[in-house]
């Protein structure tokens, strides 16, 4: 099926088997291998990308269902010369070891910060209250991204310092 998706600002037209997930379209067809295939079942978050500004698991999404959508993967977040503040914070805070989950962690962070900014509640948010930018909120909101190296304390630290840098 002919499908056109705007990926990192560029319209990309693909002829796809309907079975192709958005993750496989990015990795196998567009050779954008930043988003990772961890579990391929929506459990690990390594495939997280932003679709129309919202974070989702690209492995649990058919590419043909995203015809006309705007996708941002890690390749569209920063450049080697000019890292995004979240990328820089992950480096500075040593927020990874093997790095496999990191593209998903960073894309998830970008979506999460927008959600927090917009006042979206989580299960850590007091009923009726605006969410606070606490460690507990960060951990809860990042619970869909698993890190097998268990860099969680550094990931929380990176997210906090990135938010300060972006303020």
């Amino acid at each position: 099926m002919r499908t056109t998706i705007t990926v990192n600002g560029e319209a990309r037209s693909l002829d796809l088997d309907p079975r192709t997930t958005l993750l496989d379209a990015l990795r196998e067809h567009l050779k954008l291998t930043g988003a990772k295939k961890g579990c391929d079942h929506g459990q690990c978050g390594a495939c997280t990308v932003l679709v129309n500004g919202v974070r989702i698991n690209s492995c649990l999404s058919l590419a043909v269902a995203h015809d006309g959508d705007e996708v941002v993967s890690i390749e569209g977040v920063g450049t080697v010369e000019k890292l995004h503040p979240v990328q820089q914070a992950f480096l500075t805070e040593d927020a990874f070891q093997c790095g496999y989950c990191t593209p998903g962690q960073i894309c998830s962070t970008l979506g999460m910060l927008k959600e927090l900014e917009a006042g979206w509640p989580s299960q850590e948010t007091a009923p009726g209250a605006d969410p606070a930018f606490t460690d507990a909120e960060i951990r809860e909101r990042m619970s869909g991204n698993i890190c097998r190296c268990s860099a969680y304390p550094q990931i929380v630290a990176a997210i906090k310092s990135a938010r300060e840098a972006m303020a």
Binding site: G42, G45, T48, V54, R55, I56, N57, L60, S61, S108, G111, M112, E115, P121, S122, Q123, T125, P127, R141, S143, G144, N145
Partner: peptide, 16 residues
């Protein structure tokens, strides 16, 4: 209802 929804899945899943 809001509390029940945020008790389920992950943010990425709830967004989709």
């Amino acid at each position: 209802l809001s509390e029940a929804i945020v008790a389920g899945g992950s943010p990425q899943l709830r967004n989709k």
